[in-house]
Design a binder for these strands. Structure first.
Lengths: 338, 338
DNA sequence: GTGAAAGCGCTAACAG
DNA sequence: CTGTTAGCGCTTTCAC
């Protein structure tokens, strides 16, 4: 290891027992100020760093939590992670971040690894394969944007009000005069996307539309390129006949924008566009994109709050915590089509 | 812990000693196929997950490396992290990601924490305070975009060819006819920024300019807002008299773009603009921004390659590895000012 | 091919 | 106030 100097070396140098050193390190009392000072000086001088691994082994608790995200290069996820970490650090927890790359196999491997690393709990952002539940069986887990299928022992969900988000985005498109709205979303079986779909349908029906007016395209990936390619395919195939698109994530919206404008279709004149998440790029895009703002700070705080509760085995009064969202109207839904 | 079932439980259930189970888990040989199967079945059935923490304690090696980044919400850094992790996993290493938020105090705390968590080596992206060298004294470390001041025992640097990058960006502005080029950069004492400055000066001098033509503004933060506010301040104060800006990171360039266009200054007609990193937003920005592309895949591979070398205590033939960059010309430097 | 036992660095009774 | 000791889960000699 980096530093072969251990508590034992400190104790012998200080002429005290390792127990005393341990007490001092952990501020557990039962030592004189005098010895404390002497020991601390020696610790400083030697740059001694306590070995948390050994401590964890002994105390059976590691105070570090694993965070699983689908894509570490996505600003939205990382803003969420940032908030979660901030709150967790305050409580003395470390975090392990792991990237699944939207790949189930990687996810399995990485979560397995986390279990071996003895994380004391897990936070799942927009993911979570069901057959992982054997391994993480007893790990307190908070899911974001996902309600697990089977009931786990010790879990809960924190999510944006996705139904409301889907509703607001769709209503904005309808208010701009759209008659034919495409929903572009993920194939992933995640409650977040299902809820946005539900909101979309709700707005449509409320506007007097019917089942025929529901148009959905499912994508395997959430990357910009996935949306771009699908749009291009539809355009080529003459399958594109919409005057509005609601993409359930901003990167998908950006992909649509690129494909459409490259083919001479103007936004917002010909097609209106709305995204979801409110990442920076939507504000700076050639035509700024209307989107749904998710309050990551609020979500991060709720996630940690809930996690601490279920780790303490407190009863959680609600298994699903919802955080409000709001619409951020921009150029891409300006004016009316009429 | 999540799983109180240990190697001991497995061994007693299988009716063998824990030594045998250990050998089987680690495929160390010296056991019959028969017992192997029996033990493996029991492991499966119980969802037994070996405790890497205990293993690490015993073997004195953890196979996990800490990665320190200034800002986890910055796409460029995370693309680099993505590549590094990819290569590291292949070699059987785990990673700890830690965010310093461009704050020295946080950095100190977080790196100290990593040392306590027994990481076996460190990767520093665009950062690294000097007084950390006590703690990380013997940790093999790879720095990205930074050459440490004091010689550490066991380190090396991987970086883009930042001089060349600074040169290319500045030359592009000069080629567009700029006579008065502002360099907007970070105050951070990091070789990466110093080198980009050097490239900027080199291009200026090569074009027949003099010391008087060097104009530099230093920023404390790399955030978009820092550049925006500084630009606004200069504009208000009437200090802005440039026809070209080279921002040493893309987010700074985006901040300039926003401030300038808000004040009615047109890009590229009135002012040309170049950034650095080639993050997505430069391609999608209202006026797409010319930038320097850093080859993150190549860099990630080099970083891991070097890290493995210094961890093996191999002699590293070069302490500084440079990866080429190239210019990505876009709208923001189109046409000439003349 | 298998088991017994020591010990990694640390904490937590317990005894003084 | 301080020291002794057992043991966390695992690997690894050394016997058999």
């Amino acid at each position: 290891m980096k530093n072969s100097i251990s508590i034992k070396d400190i104790s012998s140098q200080a002429g005290v027992s390792i127990a005393t050193v341990s007490r001092i390190i952990n501020k557990n009392g039962r030592y004189s100020q005098e010895t404390e000072k002497r020991v601390m000086d020696i610790i400083k001088k030697n740059n001694y760093v306590p070995n948390l691994v050994a401590k964890g082994l002994r105390t059976q608790k590691m105070k570090n939590v694993g965070i699983v995200v689908p894509d570490i290069t996505n600003e939205f996820f990382m803003k969420l992670v940032y908030e979660i970490e901030k709150n967790l650090f305050q409580e003395g927890y470390e975090t392990f971040l792991c990237n699944t790359d939207e790949d189930e196999d990687k996810e399995r491997k990485r979560v397995h690894m986390m279990a071996m690393q003895n994380v004391c709990s897990l936070i799942y952002i927009a993911g979570g394969i069901s057959d992982m539940q054997d391994v993480i069986r007893d790990l307190p887990t908070v899911f974001i944007d996902r309600v697990p299928d089977k009931a786990l022992g010790n879990y809960c969900t924190v999510e944006s009000d996705n139904v409301q988000g889907g509703y607001l985005a769709t209503k904005e498109l309808l208010d701009c005069g759209c008659k034919n709205i495409l929903l572009l979303t993920s194939r992933k079986k995640i409650s977040g996307y299902a809820d946005r779909f539900e909101g979309y349908v709700k707005a449509l029906l409320e506007a007097g539309m019917e089942a025929d007016d529901i148009h959905v395209v499912y994508l395997d990936q959430l990357h910009y390129a996935a949306a771009y390619e699908e749009m291009m395919r539809m355009l080529e195939a003459g399958e594109f006949a919409y005057d509005g698109i609601f993409a359930t994530s901003d990167w998908l919206a950006v992909g649509c924008y690129k494909a459409l404008t490259e083919r001479g279709i103007r936004i917002p004149e010909d097609v209106k566009l709305a995204g979801y998440d409110d990442i920076s790029i939507t504000a700076f895009n050639g035509v700024p994109i209307t989107t749904i703002h998710q309050q990551v700070d609020e979500m991060g705080a709720r996630v940690v709050e809930q996690l601490l509760k279920i780790m303490r085995q407190d009863k959680v009064e609600q298994n699903i915590v919802k955080v409000p969202v709001y619409l951020v109207p921009r150029e891409s839904t300006r004016g009316t089509t009429e």
